[in-house]
């Protein structure tokens, strides 16, 4: 597709958002497709010393060092097991590229702002910190995650 047609397509659908849906444990989540760079299978990660429990380690993504966040742990579920069956969603926020470990990826949803419900006012930390909206689709409930919030807090920024 040419640049111009891409731009055209974009402007045409500016009111709609595209979201990638995926499963973590028994729940379904989605994130904005614009943040997603690619999707790939799990490969064993190199453990980072003294890292947060949700940081699985780093893997080689075509020559770049990609940190992997275990989204299950990040969202307060038990850690993921059986790694071969898992999926890494590579997301980019600003200049930072991070892999999110999830159970399975499913479809790409096109939604309009009016379909997105505000997150409920429940006490769970997950809802407060990470979920920025809810989506009801064919009897499914999907939580929309704000990608920025699930990324690790950058460490060592005090050093020049």
């Amino acid at each position: 597709m040419s640049e111009s047609s891409a731009a055209l397509l974009q402007s045409r659908s500016s009111s709609a958002r595209e979201l990638i849906a995926f499963a973590v444990g028994k729940q379904e989540f989605c994130i904005d497709v614009m943040a997603v760079r690619e999707i790939r299978g799990w490969t064993p990660a190199t453990v980072l010393p003294h890292s947060q429990s949700y940081v699985r380690g780093v893997i080689n993504l075509r020559g770049a060092v990609l940190p992997i966040m275990d989204l299950a742990v990040r969202l307060g579920f038990p850690p993921a097991e059986a790694m071969g069956r898992h999926v890494i969603i590579v997301v980019q926020v600003g200049s930072q590229v991070v892999g999110l470990l999830v159970d399975a990826v499913s479809d790409i949803l096109t939604v309009t702002a009016s379909e997105i419900l505000p997150p409920p006012d429940v006490a769970s930390d997950m809802a407060k910190h990470f979920v920025c909206g809810l989506l009801a689709m064919e009897g499914r409930m999907l939580s929309i995650l704000s990608v920025d919030s699930v990324l690790p807090e950058r460490e060592g920024t005090e050093v020049q």
Binding site: L48, P49, H50, S51, V55, V58, G63, A64, V65, L66, P67, S95, Q96, V97, V98, P152, E153, R154, E155, G156, T157, V159
Partner: peptide, 13 residues
């Protein structure tokens, strides 16, 4: 390869 680009400083590394 930088760890800081996508992650941050890792103590001891």
């Amino acid at each position: 390869k930088s760890l800081e680009a996508n992650y941050g400083r890792v103590p001891g590394i």
